[in-house]
């Protein structure tokens, strides 16, 4: 069982993330936590100084965090995006496609299930924030 799953080689930020509101006021923070109702675009002017964005999933059925992650990647953010909270093995594949590269679930995930989930799909149909080539591009290479 693992507590934090990271798909990055750099050193993890070792202090707590602050809320978006306090981040915008506090110029030296480099880790910030997004709640579902926060607008990820508020962070875009500050991306150069951010090393970690935690995206909170209070309940796994609230899908706003998927858009938040993609918006940050689309804006060129290369730091860590970590899904925290009610993060379950059946959702992490899609989260990874949306740009998440770390997971800190409330309940630990079975590594074998994680491996199966992340290797499930032979291809993907559409473009997202990962580097996978969509089927419709493979067909016309």
């Amino acid at each position: 069982m693992v507590d934090i799953l990271r798909f990055r080689d750099d050193e993890a930020v070792d202090h707590a993330a602050v809320t978006v509101d306090s981040f915008v006021e506090q110029t030296n923070a480099n880790a910030v936590r997004i709640e579902p109702s926060d607008d990820a675009r508020d962070l875009i002017p500050h991306l150069a100084q951010i090393h970690l964005v935690e995206v909170n999933f209070p309940v796994f059925g609230d899908g706003r965090g998927y858009s938040a992650a993609r918006i940050l990647r689309e804006a060129g953010y290369t730091g860590e995006i970590r899904a925290v909270g009610d993060v379950l093995v059946d959702q992490i594949g899609n989260m990874k496609r949306c740009g998440f590269d770390a997971f800190e679930p409330d309940a630990p995930l079975d590594p074998a299930d994680v491996k199966a989930a992340l290797n499930r799909w032979p291809e993907v149909y559409q473009e997202s924030a990962d580097s996978r080539t969509p089927i419709w591009n493979l067909r016309h290479e």
């Binding site: 899908g63 998927y66 594949g93 149909y125 559409q126």
Partner: peptide, 13 residues
Amino acid sequence: RQWSSFHPEFMYL
């Protein structure tokens, strides 16, 4: 259909 199948961002609308 292809675009919307397993769309990673839009599974929990």
